[in-house]
Amino acid sequence: MAQEKSKPKNGVTAKDVKKIAKLSRLHVEADRLEPIAEDLNGILGWIEQLAEVDVEGVEPMTSAVDMAAPLRADNVSDGGKRDDVLKNAPKSDDGFFVVPRSVE
């Protein structure tokens, strides 16, 4: 059952990990970049066996159910729950979420 673990052809480097972490909004310490790259390459190398499959002319599967997206009337069906919405906020004030400044 042990499947072969190969180095991926397009493996990630420490520099790539830094970029992926930034896109993911995760903080990675500098000394962890290399170990994480190795970790990800172990998984990506295993995933690369997908290249063996003949997918010529095959449509990508984007939904697990065989049906069109349902439509509904454009009516208000819910709302007026400000206090409920704010109930779990880490910080709120006077009916608003309080967030760090994002524009100077």
Binding site: N10, L50, V53, V55, P60, T62
Partner: peptide, 16 residues
């Protein structure tokens, strides 16, 4: 740069 090689291909394998 990786979307087609990984994600799109995986969705096609899913169809298979």
């Amino acid at each position: 740069g990786y979307y087609d090689a990984y994600y799109l291909r995986a969705q096609k394998v899913r169809t298979r």
